[in-house]
Design a protein around this nucleic acid. Structure first.
Length: 948
DNA sequence: TTTCTCGCT
DNA sequence: TCTGTGAGCGAGAAAT
């Protein structure tokens, strides 16, 4: 190399030696992270360590004037040291969450500076540095190792120095002597004796650095010391050394850096190059390093300004969907390649393909990944017969399968990695705290994967991101988001699997078609993430996303996975009972009507009531049919007509039977014997959750008959159900938000809030109050939250509109702040198009500026209600995120199963239920600190009916 | 697929 | 003065 070297690289031939700078990238990022205050880039990613790294590189180039320079990183995973000492570095806690995304960025930064970014699987950065340092030294170069890691001090020589970039301090032989009390070439012996608790190097117990340096001073080196250990005068020390000689030798192997790593890149390739100004500036600008930008411009030229902040809104800043390249992964080697790629990128979009929309029964058919827009892979895992490549299948089309002998099953199954093996390989990636997993509705995939023992973390969900940003102004399905943001129409599921009767499951899809569809999903998810995530910070939604909706995803996944036990015998008995009574009612009604008709048909019923029987008060719906709602029928019943009364009874039973007792039994999962609802996190405008398949948020409670359904929701054997619900949370929130002193006082004093209101509005004492009076006040209290009108209240209470209007006026007099609050809410909504909850969630209000008066007042009522309902939803979300951890911390096995807007349901082992209830109540009541107390009512029982 | 009705908070 | 008249959901069945 010396002969062929270009003349401008100086060799040891008397001229100034060339200077090689080796940067310990992994060591630096940890120190910079802890040393520098938190910073975030415009997209909300934490970047303090990356910033520190960039300034350091700039400064280093200036100060050290290297001829060659490289940045060296620790690879992911175990190293050769773990092969002979598995405990090595085993106690390291996972990296802080804010540091995780920076691992990838720091490599990006290195490349942006046009510096080699070096790492090698199986070897620590320290070993690579050692190898390069020794090579460079042998070639007569000077070496500067940019690190302050004491493990590298063994490398210091005349030609090799260390440099602590954060303290701006050079470390030479003198500094090593100061630290270890010996010269650099004896550092290994000291470390072998003293050990290192951080890296979990054992050393010899009872011997620290001081003793070690004394001993090495006296005996020369470790081998001599161990050989002559018997000569040591202090009995304890002598024993320890003799006993632990082997431990010392292992420790020496652990701390000795490898100087003969089979490196791929050569030092000659580290020759310092000027960075591409445009690449570097765009990297720096995109991460918001303003002060660096001007420095870089001054040094390297270039002319890039900060991009003006993207206008919030839909359809801007589209990423064009360029030609994509997708790979079908069918063997372990390619899977390993993709896993490494994802580890290196630090972010990966993940999507699973399965056989069912029910995550609790779906069979995992394949996984797709994407690390960059335009790339992606699909890993088939459970494709079966007829899932051959569609072309191959086409050539088989001529065969008469009916006559042919059945081919061996294996021949029909396409080549794919065994499911268990693939899970084993991909699990570390999906659980790696250093790699962000991105999904679209990732909750589904998390449930499927959790059934294979994988807990996906950390994660981002593009569906949730979209919801936090845009509310329900549009849907958040992937096809819709792709169309909206990328102007691209992805392959539809129905194009791959068909629809209706001929629909096939994904395991029957030919691999080439499956690849196009599945890899595209991951690719698009990744692209959407790149568009949506930056908006979170720009639009100041970081708090809502980071502290509420994102951490809720794994919580919901867990709840759905657990499900709730339902006693199907109880349901069956109820069904039978309802059916009998319905049959009797049906007969009676047909007799009364004089002809048989379909009781379930509002149309036929309306014709019977109003055309045939000519009952009064008939009103028509906008489609021209008679209205037959409960209110209409109740009105007729009040006039003394029997038939409507019977219809109402029948309807109640019919509803309970079809919607609950029959339907619920069909939702019991045969594998778990429990019912697993699915929570919709992005369906409700105000921030509430919704529940579907089945909806467990509308299980009857108000009527005696309906309440029986809740007896079928039971605790597992040896367990109890706990129900904990917030008392009057929305009224309390109103009192807090609108600053209604009188209301706040009543809550602080623990008064019956409806009685208190009645007492003030109607001027009667609380003692001995007429229940009717309290009922009126209760109706007003609730009505107010929704922006009630005199008409509505009159209807509700069955009083005249004038009277109702007087009540409302009186109410506003008593609580004057309420009117102000309502006006402010409306005004805010008119101005911004949305309102905001206490916790920063924006709720879009449709029609607030509509010309149509009806639509506008609809919007106005929404503006009044949304901050209250949404604020309550935020509070219970905070509780849901905190409660499971609090229960675990208390050593309890109690688990959260269900949420019903202001109520949480838990399943607790019988003997810990009382303890659990205390913790649950405490966390829920402290989920927010308002100017009124939050109160939680909780109960224990064998069924939901008992616990409530 | 849409409409009506009704269950919950 | 008159509209139509507290909020937010999901599900089943009939009608289209």
């Amino acid at each position: 190399m010396t002969d062929s070297a270009p003349s401008d690289t100086k060799t040891s031939s008397g001229q100034k030696p060339r200077r090689v700078v080796l940067v310990d990238g992994s060591g630096f990022i940890f120190r910079a992270f802890h040393a520098l205050p938190p910073m975030t880039s415009p997209d909300g990613t934490p970047v303090n360590a990356v910033y520190g790294f960039c300034t350091m590189l700039m400064k280093l180039r200036e100060d050290t004037k290297p001829d060659h320079m490289a940045v060296i990183f620790d690879p992911k995973g175990k190293t050769f040291r773990n092969d002979f000492y598995p405990e090595y570095k085993a106690h390291r806690p996972p990296a802080p969450e804010e540091l995780v995304p920076q691992f990838g960025l720091i490599r990006d930064a290195t490349r942006a500076f046009n510096l080699p970014s070096i790492e090698l699987e199986g070897y620590e950065a320290d070993d690579l540095i050692a190898t390069y340092a020794r090579q460079a030294e042998a070639e007569g170069s000077d070496v500067i190792i940019v690190s302050s890691d004491k493990d590298l001090m063994q490398l210091v020589t005349d030609r090799v120095q260390m440099f602590d970039a954060m303290k701006n301090r050079t470390i030479g032989a003198a500094e090593v002597m100061e630290k270890f009390g010996v010269s650099p070439n004896k550092v290994i012996d000291i470390q072998a004796l003293a050990g290192d608790s951080v890296d979990n190097v054992p050393g010899v117990p009872g011997i620290g650095i001081k003793t070690a340096s004394q001993l090495i001073d006296e005996y020369g080196d470790l081998d001599s010391l161990l050989e002559r250990a018997g000569e040591i005068k202090q009995p304890k020390r002598r024993e320890k050394l003799i006993e632990n000689a082997e431990l010392a030798r292992i420790s020496r192997r652990l701390v000795t850096l490898k100087t003969d790593v089979p490196v791929v890149e050569q030092i000659s390739g580290f020759e310092l190059k000027e960075p591409d100004a445009e690449v570097l500036l765009s990297f720096i600008a995109s991460h918001g390093f303003k002060s660096l930008l001007s420095k870089v411009k001054a040094k390297f030229g270039g002319d890039i300004e900060f991009e003006s902040p993207t206008q919030p809104g839909v359809g801007v800043n589209k990423i064009n969907v360029e030609k994509a390249e997708y790979e079908l992964v069918q063997d372990e080697e390619r899977l390993r390649h993709w896993i490494a790629k994802a580890e290196y990128a630090g972010t990966v979009a993940v999507d699973t393909e399965t056989t069912s929309l029910d995550a609790h029964q779906a069979k995992l058919v394949g996984i797709s990944l994407s690390t960059e827009p335009g790339n992606g892979c699909y890993i088939p895992l459970g494709h079966g017969k007829s899932a051959e490549n569609s072309e191959a299948k086409g050539t088989q089309g001529g065969f008469d399968f009916g006559d042919a002998k059945e081919a061996p099953a294996k021949a029909d199954i396409p080549k794919q990695i065994a499911l268990d093996r693939a899970i084993e390989l991909i699990k570390p990636l999906l659980q790696d705290t250093g790699v962000l997993k991105i999904g679209q509705n990732l909750k589904y995939d998390m449930i499927v994967l959790s059934r294979h023992g994988i807990d996906v973390a950390p994660m981002d969900d593009t569906m949730v991101l979209s919801y936090v940003l845009d509310g329900t102004s549009h849907g958040h399905g992937m096809d819709e988001l792709a169309d909206l943001h990328l102007d691209y129409q992805p392959i539809k599921f129905s194009e791959v699997c068909g629809s209706g009767k001929t629909q096939i499951t994904f395991d029957q899809v030919p691999l080439d078609k499956a690849l196009d569809y599945a890899a595209e999903d991951a690719d698009i998810t990744l692209r959407l993430h790149r568009l949506l995530k930056p908006r979170i910070a720009q639009e100041h939604m970081a708090s809502v996303y980071e502290t509420l909706d994102r951490p809720l995803v794994p919580v919901l996944a867990k709840m759905e996975r657990l499900g709730v036990k339902v006693d199907t015998d109880i349901l069956k008995n109820l069904s039978d009972d309802f059916a009998k009574r319905m049959a009797i009612l049906e007969k009676t009604i047909h007799e009364m009507a004089g002809e048989p008709f379909n009781l379930g048909s509002p149309k036929q019923l309306g014709e019977i009531l109003f055309d045939k029987m000519s009952l009064p008060g008939g009103k028509k719906t906008k489609t021209g049919a008679w209205q037959t709602g409960a209110d209409v029928l109740e009105g007729l019943a009040a006039l003394g007509h029997d038939l409507p009364t019977k219809i109402l009874e029948w309807r109640q039973l019919s509803k309970l039977k079809s919607t609950y007792t029959d339907a619920l039994a069909n939702h019991v999962n045969p594998l778990t014997g429990r019912v697993h609802t699915s929570y919709g996190q992005t369906n409700v405008n105000t921030g509430r959750l919704s529940s579907n398949d089945p909806n467990l948020q509308n299980i009857p409670i108000r009527s005696e008959e309906g309440r029986k359904i809740r007896t079928a929701f039971v605790a597992d054997k040896g367990c109890k159900l706990i129900s904990a619900d917030y008392s009057q949370i929305e009224l309390r929130l109103l009192a807090h938000v609108a600053e209604i002193d009188a209301l706040r006082e009543a809550f602080k004093n623990g008064e019956d809030i409806h009685a208190a209101t009645a007492s003030k509005v109607f001027g009667v004492p609380i003692e001995g109050m007429d229940p009717m009076v309290r009922r009126k006040a209760k109706a007003i209290n609730f009505g107010i939250i929704y922006g009630i009108s005199a008409f509505g209240l009159a209807n509700q209470l069955g009083i005249g509109q004038k009277e109702a209007k007087a009540f409302i006026e009186a109410y506003f007099e008593i609580y004057p702040g309420i009117r102000d609050y309502m006006d402010q809410a409306k005004e805010f909504a008119k101005k911004h198009g949305h309102v905001r909850t206490l916790f920063g969630r924006n709720i879009h209000i449709n029609g607030i500026n509509d010309k149509n008066g009806m639509r506008r007042s609809f919007g106005e009522r929404a503006a009044i209600n949304a901050p209250i309902q949404g604020g309550a939803a935020d509070i219970i979300k905070r509780a849901m995120i905190a409660v499971p951890g609090a229960l675990v911390d208390a050593g309890l096995k109690t688990r959260m199963l269900l949420q019903v807007h202001d109520e949480l349901i838990f399943e607790a082992p019988e003997d810990e239920a009382e303890k659990a209830i205390k913790i649950i109540r405490d966390v829920m009541e402290n989920a927010a600190h308002l100017s009124v107390p939050l109160i939680v009512d909780a109960g224990i029982g064998d069924s939901w009916a008992d616990a409530h």
